[in-house]
Write a protein that binds this DNA or RNA. Structure first.
Lengths: 138, 138
DNA sequence: ATCCTACATTGGACTAAGTCCAAGTCAAAC
DNA sequence: GTTTGACTTGGACTTAGTCCAATGTAGGAT
């Protein structure tokens, strides 16, 4: 979405070819890519883009709240462009595939004060785990 | 708990000094240690124990279901010896500290079939994020 | 249109956390 | 006490990511 590019420009981003390409890649089919997958797709559009820039740009998008970082395990982090619609994740324990899901209920409300230990709780993240159709079929 | 040692023996574990030490370390004050912290404490009791063995043993304990692996981010995994009492986690976004928490409600029931995409869902993991008293105070 | 400069990009070296493996050791079944 | 297959070891290797000094450039000022 060029909305994204607009928003970024509005926030004072200097608009470089590299940043545009990374934003376009994330905007494509909405999947949960690793930084390396983003880099691979970016290279296809702009061969000289470096890994460091992809990491930088993804990091900036995350701090701006435009993209969500999902680290479900010790494998590579994945990036979720669907940051403006609240949701949770369903991940395949075997192959690492991720889907966005929308459970009912409000887990934040389910944590009583007595269970907060003085923390300032700002966010919940619910991760469902299981096997995707492909992996459970085999 | 020497219950742990009992259970492991019962499951056909060959009981070596190294494994005993790792089990003892986990059994100590119940905190969420990284593999390196476990190794450090283990070395104090058995100086010649190697990192590889600590990793192996932790991995085995996890597959046996005696210990829970918690990977909240791309930092080191943490190991939670409280595997037999179901619970979730509250983690400090700044320093990485973890506490066990017991929210009310049942998130597994909150994921409708239409949101399962053919996955065989076996587990939910709820992670509350925020700042611990120390980190929010400073 | 051109200049200027602060912000961006680059690639290569570096790091943290973990995995792998061939050789050596040892718990426990006999 | 032997035997033997499971366990341990340390060092090399991998993966995912961070850091940095040198270089390039977007976009405001002129």
């Amino acid at each position: 979405m060029s909305d994204l590019l607009e928003r970024l420009r509005g926030r004072g981003w200097r608009m470089t070819a590299q940043r545009r390409v990374v934003a376009e890649v994330l905007d494509g089919e909405h999947v949960h890519m690793t930084a390396d997958e983003v880099h691979a797709r970016a290279v296809a559009k702009l061969p000289e883009i470096s890994r460091a820039t992809v990491y930088n740009t993804l990091g900036e998008l995350v701090t701006l709240g435009e993209v969500l970082e999902v680290s479900t395990d010790r494998r590579a982090k994945r990036y979720d462009p669907n940051a403006h619609r609240p949701h949770h994740h369903l991940v395949c324990a075997r192959c690492g595939a991720i889907r966005d899901v929308h459970p009912t209920g409000n887990p934040l409300a389910d944590l009583p004060d007595t269970e907060r230990f003085g923390f300032t709780v700002s966010d919940v993240e619910v991760t469902y785990r299981g096997l995707c159709p492909e992996c459970s079929g085999a």
